[in-house]
Design a protein around this nucleic acid. Structure first.
Lengths: 119, 119
DNA sequence: TCTTGCTATAAACCTAGGTTTATAGTTCAT
DNA sequence: ATGAACTATAAACCTAGGTTTATAGCAAGA
């Protein structure tokens, strides 16, 4: 498969596919080069990129993911589990902050809280 | 008060104070210039900046706030209320997305959900 | 073979919210 | 009156996650 095929099958722009590769998000087993230096992708890359999209959508950063998939690092199940648990904790921290924000803004609307200055 | 005083009283770096001003976050009534073009702040700016910090911490953007405080615009109570309600809605949307993310990651840990590829 | 279309790279650009740097004028304590 | 400390501006730099642009080399059909 060439890059345009992958783009169509995954919905990711070609520019994004090249960007992900630069960021070490796409292991070598998914992409090689032909005689003209064109990228030749394996079929499996489509499924793989679907996983990447899922992870990005659940608040993993590109760097998180490139760590998870780095073949050199070869993380154990336990290590990957730890990363996921840490990410869940991150999400819970954000949720707490958002709850406080919402409470504050609702208080402002009810007149319970107010700005000192006229905002 | 000069900028260093404001910085110390608010905890905001001098560079941030100047940056906020460039972003129209600090109305003229809070800051004038002396003969040497030095910023001279009113005492009220400290309270005002405390409000700004609060708003920033509850997910308002700098642009949101500069809209809220723009004297030219002179928003009515109803209009400001609408902006706040909209922000609460934004927060709730983020919360929903985070709940889904957390559920997914927990499912991964329990083995209920899994990545097709070995991530 | 010619033209349109696909591929490649490097580098610049984008938003957001700042921070850092370079350069220059001012003020204060000694 | 001189050197350290403070102020000013403009412009560059930073992270994240990309997108856009410029330039050039292949490809594939009429």
């Amino acid at each position: 498969m060439k890059i345009n095929d992958v783009s169509k099958l995954t919905g990711l722009p070609i520019s994004t596919l090249r960007f992900y590769e630069r960021k070490n998000l796409i292991p070598d087993r998914f992409v090689q080069r032909d005689a003209n230096n064109y990228r030749i992708y394996s079929e499996e890359v489509v499924e793989y990129l679907s996983d990447v999209k899922t992870l990005l959508s659940v608040d993993f950063s590109i760097e998180d993911i490139s760590l998870l998939v780095d073949q050199q690092l070869n993380l154990s199940y336990e290590e990957k589990k730890k990363i996921i648990e840490h990410k869940i904790q991150d999400i819970e921290d954000i949720q707490q902050r958002l709850n406080k924000s919402k409470k504050f803004l609702n208080d402002v609307l009810e007149g319970t809280a107010t700005f000192q200055t006229k905002c």
